[in-house]
């Protein structure tokens, strides 16, 4: 094995910078969690490792920029993939102008549209999981994703992104969401309406929902 340098210790996994056949690569290792029962822990880590490896490759075939998977080690809960040498979108949103936010999120809407159209939901769409690099927007972290064309799952996927925007980027969340919807519609066409309607329904379904949400108003 090549030399490894710890890049990042995330909540779920450790990322190491290494190389594969002379290319820079990232080793993602899902670490054991002391707070979980050991059987539950290996079940969850195993499921997410194989899930992520499969979905990264399949998303790529749908035209969604993702890292290239080089190899998977299910026994050690590891994925070796290409390195995208740039910080996540989260770091840039705060310094972006409104136009730039609108443009980025309409492209993100297109990307998510392509993913959904191809029968995949990401499961954790946040600005930490999108990396702008060489003119493309890379989607990473597919561990919570699944194969489904279910309206509900697509709706939850978008609902979670909207919620993440509201908690982490509240100052631009409406522009970002509206632009996202534009992009999503462009790719999903007629199929988008039922999903977007469901997003609103999921939002209103929340246990405690403010009045403006219940009326279906959007900011």
């Amino acid at each position: 094995m090549a030399e490894m340098r710890l890049l990042k210790k995330g909540a779920e996994a450790e990322l190491y910078l290494t190389d594969w056949m002379g290319w820079k690569a990232v080793l993602k290792r899902r670490v054991k969690k002391g707070y979980r029962n050991p059987d539950l822990d290996s079940y969850v880590r195993g499921l997410r490792t194989s899930n992520e490896a499969k979905l990264l490759s399949e998303a790529r075939r749908l035209g969604v920029p993702t890292p290239v998977v080089y190899s998977v080690d299910k026994r050690n809960f590891e994925i070796l993939m290409s390195y995208i040498d740039a910080p996540p979108l989260k770091r840039f949103v705060g310094s972006m102008g409104t136009d730039e936010v609108a443009l980025s999120f309409s492209r993100i809407g297109e990307i998510v549209g392509r993913l959904h159209k191809g029968g995949i939901v990401h499961g954790d769409l946040t600005t930490s999981n999108i990396i702008p690099y060489s003119g493309l927007l890379y989607l990473i972290d597919f561990g919570l994703g699944e194969h489904t064309s279910n309206v509900e799952s697509r709706g939850v996927d978008i609902h979670l992104m909207r919620r993440a925007l509201e908690s982490s980027h509240h100052e631009v969340s409406s522009v970002a969401y509206l632009s996202f919807v534009d992009g999503y519609r462009r790719v999903m066409g007629d199929m988008s309406e039922v999903v977007l309607k469901r997003v609103d329904a999921i939002r209103k379904r929340g246990r405690y929902v403010d009045v403006s949400r219940r009326k279906g108003a959007m900011d």
Partner: peptide, 22 residues
């Protein structure tokens, strides 16, 4: 009961961990 509590608490612990990292 063991499995129910482990799964239920494990889920809270995981999202709490994500939130504290974030």
């Amino acid at each position: 009961s063991l499995s129910l509590l482990e799964v239920a608490y494990g889920m809270v612990a995981e999202v709490a961990e994500r939130a504290i990292a974030h």
